[in-house]
Amino acid sequence: MTNTPQPVPASQPIPDSTAAMKSAVKWGVMGLIALAVVGALLAGLFAGKEGVYGALIGAAVGGGFILFTALGVLLTAKLPALTAGAVLLGTWLLKMILAMVVLFVLSDMDFYNKTALVLVIIMSLVVVLGAETYGVLGTKTPYVDPTPSSNVDDDE
C-alpha cells in the first residue's frame, strides 16, 4: 500500500518552524497580562496598595522568568544546535541571577505585600506555562518534510 502525498495548495501557506513558539509567546504574554490585572485587583481588595505592588512585582518576576525561556528558544531557533544550547544556558543563568538580585533587593523593603508577591509568582508560573502549552498545542505544523526523499524504495 502506498500513500502519495498531495501538494499543499498555494492558498494554504506552510507554517515556519517557529510558529509554535510564536504562538506560545503570544498566549503566554496574554495569560500574564490577565493574571497581572486579576492578581492586582484581588490583592488590592485584600491588602490595599501594598497588595497591588506585590502582585505586579510577582507577575513581572514569575512571568518574565518563564517568558525569557520561550523568547530565547524563539530567537535561537535558526541557529546551530550548539550555539542555541549555549545561548539558552546563558539566559537561564542570567534569569537565575536576576531573580535572586530582585528578591534580595526587595527583601528589606516594605512597600509591597509579601504574600501577594509569592502567590502571584507561583500563579504566574502556572498560568504562563499553561498558556504557552495551549499556544503550542493549538498550532498546526507539518510533521514531515514536504519534499520527497530520494532514497524511497518502490518495492513496497
Results as ranks from 00 to 15, higher is better:
94 L>E: 01
91 T>G: 08
107 S>H: 10
91 T>A: 14
69 T>V: 09
108 D>L: 06
91 T>H: 03
114 K>R: 15
84 A>I: 09
141 T>S: 05
112 Y>W: 11
68 F>V: 15
95 K>F: 01
140 K>G: 10
125 L>G: 10
131 A>P: 00
53 Y>G: 08
50 E>P: 00
62 G>F: 06
117 L>P: 01
143 Y>T: 15
72 G>L: 11
77 A>E: 04
101 V>L: 05
118 V>I: 15
108 D>M: 06
112 Y>H: 11
124 S>G: 03
23 S>I: 13
128 V>L: 04
100 M>C: 15
65 F>Q: 01
22 K>R: 15
76 T>R: 01
52 V>K: 05
35 L>E: 07
42 L>Y: 02
70 A>S: 14
144 V>R: 05
30 M>T: 14
133 T>C: 06
51 G>S: 13
30 M>S: 13
74 L>D: 05
58 G>T: 09
45 L>A: 05
38 V>F: 03
101 V>F: 01
149 S>H: 11
53 Y>I: 15
75 L>S: 10
34 A>R: 05
137 L>T: 10
149 S>Y: 03
107 S>T: 10
87 V>Q: 06
74 L>M: 08
32 L>Q: 12
24 A>M: 13
46 F>P: 00
23 S>A: 15
52 V>C: 13
118 V>S: 01
132 E>W: 03
45 L>H: 02
86 A>I: 14
148 P>R: 13
80 P>G: 15
39 G>Q: 10
143 Y>F: 07
71 L>G: 02
138 G>E: 00
26 K>Y: 05
40 A>W: 07
77 A>V: 03
59 A>V: 12
86 A>R: 08
26 K>W: 02
32 L>T: 14
27 W>E: 08
98 L>M: 09
81 A>L: 03
144 V>Q: 04
91 T>W: 01
133 T>D: 03
137 L>C: 02
136 V>K: 12
53 Y>M: 08
118 V>E: 00
18 T>Q: 06
88 L>W: 00
47 A>Q: 07
144 V>I: 04
108 D>E: 09
111 F>P: 01
104 F>C: 12
81 A>I: 04
113 N>Q: 10
21 M>A: 13
81 A>Y: 02
122 I>T: 14
91 T>R: 05
142 P>T: 07
44 G>M: 08
104 F>I: 12
26 K>F: 08
41 L>A: 12
148 P>Q: 08
112 Y>A: 11
132 E>I: 13
66 I>R: 02
48 G>P: 02
52 V>M: 12
68 F>S: 13
93 L>Q: 04
26 K>Q: 07
144 V>A: 07
124 S>L: 15
37 V>A: 10
86 A>F: 03
81 A>K: 02
121 I>R: 00
47 A>S: 11
122 I>K: 04
83 T>G: 09
123 M>W: 10
113 N>P: 00
87 V>E: 04
45 L>T: 07
58 G>E: 08
138 G>H: 04
131 A>T: 15
130 G>S: 12
58 G>I: 11
110 D>H: 15
120 V>I: 11
114 K>P: 05
72 G>S: 10
77 A>C: 08
89 L>K: 15
95 K>W: 00
93 L>C: 04
136 V>I: 13
72 G>P: 00
